[in-house]
Design a protein around this nucleic acid. Structure first.
Length: 431
RNA sequence: GGGGGAAUACCAAAGCGGCCAACUGGGGCGGACUGUAAAUCCGCUGUCUACGACUUCACAGGUUCGAAUCCUGUUUCCCCCA
């Protein structure tokens, strides 16, 4: 199966220029995908582009990661994004290093072969470009008529958009197009890939290469990911799902994939998994026979957690999952070590109380409200009400009587795990 | 400018002068079930130092042993006629 066939069955091709397959068959080729280095971490929205490069490298070609240090400052009108902030160079380099480290999980940058992956930053060749130089050498070759014909531009100029479009944004496609030209000249890169919204920007690049170098270059775009329920992919209530464990814990990362809906899953598995066709089809079959087991979700969640984080991180996530959602017991809770406990409940509201206060406390209700500084319940009334409704558990054991005395065995000699409802956890530290 | 009507909890919407902390529906929060889903079913939903106490029905007064309910004024909103 060649690269294009591979992407095709995975549903990752939205559009491509004629002749791509011929080019790829002819020689080892280079292709690039652009990423914004606006943060020091990638998020899962970037994963599609990365996977394209991954498959490209697996097919024996050379993937190039282009960081838009320069273009990111301008703002792509395709996404009707706001004007961007200028990143200072120090931040840019920091982000670049972090992103490269994450890219390493997917792409091989150290291969001894000629198709080793490479990372470039367009800031490096754009920063010294003078305005005069740019409009003379680049702007001369592309007509405004051509630029205005792009959908992304038309939309901004039409009555629908109230904001108008700055000249800066208008020139975006030239700058991005120039990247392609630059890579074509410097690295013999003949293919740019990206989301389908990038089509217009990519073709500006191929146009430049045709006019200025009389060369031939190609574009391949993949469909933008759509979720079955219409909501945006990659976001949760708490924001983006980042690849950086400091921004999104491996546990949350794992949970994100595990929670994907069945309808989305048949697309996701093909896009985000490196598993082959047969294996995926077998998994799908298994999944359809017993949908409640969510075979696909588990398979993908595990694969990606290990790839992006590590096997240890996955083990931790699985353990956390079983504690939070499984029918785990007090015994199980006691069995895990302090580090695991703390990382599982990282981000959960915490309260510290003193041992003597705990001993003085008359009943459970007081403990849940006053003693814990109203963090768990704002008043005794609420605590009582919730206990009556069977909604409070301490160390995984349901509290039945609101007036019961406080007799709690501490986890690791200093923690108490309180659950309000099914999903709200509180960690009380007795110090 | 003249006439009529309305105002109740997060929203909607009931409420013979005592049985009203106020029917019901939605939402929210819990519970059971389940696949950490959907559907379904059940409970809670003014506050609290809780078998009781306190503060509520636009606002301010009044009638009454007793007012969300009757009266007066104020404010806001809606409708109709100019």
């Amino acid at each position: 199966m060649n690269f294009i066939e591979e992407l095709q069955w995975r549903g990752m091709i939205h559009d491509m220029m004629p002749g791509v397959e011929k080019q790829l068959a002819k020689e080892m080729s280079s292709a690039y995908v652009g990423f914004d280095p606006t943060a020091d971490s990638l998020h899962i929205g970037h994963l599609v582009g990365i996977m394209m490069l991954k498959h490209f490298q697996d097919a024996g070609h050379k993937p190039i990661v282009l960081l838009g240090g320069a273009t990111g400052m301008i703002g792509d009108p395709s996404g009707k994004s706001q004007e961007r902030n200028l990143l200072d160079e120090k931040t840019l380099r920091h982000n670049e290093a972090s992103i490269k480290a994450q890219m390493r999980k997917f792409l091989d940058f150290d291969a001894k072969t000629e198709n080793s992956a490479e990372l470039v930053n367009n800031y490096d060749w754009m920063k010294d470009f003078s305005f005069l130089g740019f409009i003379r050498d680049v702007g001369k070759h592309i007509t405004v008529n051509y630029m205005m014909a792009k959908d992304s531009v038309k939309k901004r100029l039409s009555a629908e958009s109230s904001e108008g479009m700055s000249f800066t944004e208008f020139t975006y496609q030239l700058v991005q197009g120039y990247d392609f030209l630059h890579l074509y000249k410097e690295k013999n890169c003949k293919l740019q890939m990206g989301g389908s919204d990038q089509w217009g920007n990519i073709t500006t690049g191929t146009e430049m290469i045709r006019k200025m170098e009389q060369g031939e270059a190609f574009a391949v775009t993949c469909p933008l990911i759509k979720k079955a329920d219409g909501t945006k992919f990659g976001k949760t209530e708490s924001g983006n799902i980042w690849l950086d464990p400091k921004k999104t814990s491996p546990y949350k990362f794992y949970q994100f994939w595990l929670n994907a809906s069945d309808e989305d899953m048949s697309n996701f598995i093909k896009i985000f998994s490196t598993k082959g066709k047969e294996e995926i089809e077998a998994l799908e079959k298994e999944h359809n026979e017993a949908p409640h087991l969510r075979t696909l979700q588990k398979a993908l969640a595990e694969e990606l957690t290990v790839r992006v984080h590590s096997q240890e991180a996955l083990d931790m996530a699985l353990k956390a999952t079983s504690i939070l959602f499984g029918k785990s017991t007090t015994e199980e809770l006691k069995s895990i070590d302090e580090d695991t406990l703390l990382s599982v409940f990282e981000g959960v509201p915490q309260v510290t109380i003193s041992k003597s206060d705990l001993d003085k406390t008359e009943n459970i209700t007081d403990f849940l409200s006053e003693l814990t500084q109203q963090v768990i319940f704002p008043s005794k009334g609420e605590a009582r009400k919730m206990i009556k409704g069977g909604g409070v558990s301490i160390n995984k054991e349901k509290v039945l009587d609101a007036n019961a005395p406080v007799e709690i065995s501490l986890l690791q000699d200093k923690y108490i795990l309180v659950q309000r409802g099914k999903k709200n956890y509180f960690l009380v530290t007795v110090g």
